[in-house]
Design a protein around this nucleic acid. Structure first.
Lengths: 147, 147
DNA sequence: CCGTATCCATTCCGATACTG
DNA sequence: CAGTATCGGAATGGATACGG
């Protein structure tokens, strides 16, 4: 039996996770946001086996999240986020802030995402309604379409 | 060799993914946000094998994301999101909106997350600076703390 | 109805050796 | 440097049978 594919799942969350819902992909994407571009740099930064990294990178390229610029003028090839890949920025930020809130003891400090302009931490990620209210899960529901 | 644990990784994203970075956990959490509470309902909704679901639920309870209310007055036990689990709301919304944007053809429609008060779709999730500007990845950097 | 136990196939992952 | 090839152990996933 094969792992169930979620590519055709009606839920957008499921389809998203079909692409990036494994152990390494989101970490690769995090590194990409931090400016990592080369195979060896991903490999050292993540401590992942090279064969695994190869497969993961290939998948991300196939799914249009990374672009493999092989044809740059006479120098090293790179993996760069596409527009689709950059669209995951709020997800990474959300994971980061959730991690900061719940996985560090009182004395243990962690890195912070900083706004370049203001040189201050980024505002906490919130789900907002059209008129700017902060929404919690209880304030929302999923309106199903079609079947 | 065992899978590398990320529990002590310096990066908050990594620690977060150590808890929820597998194929099923985020889908379970999505269902929990949608009001699913019982074992059998998760099982049917996800189509996951029961033994796997058992392990995943136990892990989520251990990590403080779900609470297993066994002691309710003489009736069925339930799995409910804790405060920590509810903190993943922006992440789920981010995944949902990213999935909506990139995995549906022009004619294929999808469900929408709706604000109960206004009965309108929730605002697109954005990363904001302290003064309300919309930040993109290029506008931010990670300030590392300690080593 | 809520799980647990067992079995088996597939996949994942890490280590290492190797190629261009 | 950027992968590919191969190997073995571990984890995952699905099906099914079973117990409370």
């Amino acid at each position: 039996m094969q792992r169930t594919s979620l590519k055709s799942d009606p839920c957008p969350v499921a389809r998203a996770l079909d692409s990036i819902g494994d152990w390494w992909s989101l970490l690769i994407i995090r590194d990409a946001f931090d400016g990592v571009r080369r195979f060896g740099d991903f490999q050292r930064s993540l401590g992942v086996a090279k064969n695994i990294l190869t497969v993961r990178l290939r998948r991300l390229v196939t799914d249009g999240i990374l672009e493999h610029t092989n044809s740059r003028e006479g120098n090293a090839q790179e993996y760069v986020l596409t527009a689709k890949g950059k669209g995951l920025f709020p997800v990474i930020v959300g994971l980061r802030q959730w991690g900061e809130s719940h996985f560090y003891g009182q004395k243990e400090r962690h890195s912070v995402l900083v706004d370049r302009d203001q040189n201050r931490p980024v505002r906490r990620l919130e789900v907002l309604s059209r008129d700017g209210r902060i929404l919690r899960a209880e304030d929302t529901f999923v309106r199903k379409i079609g079947s």
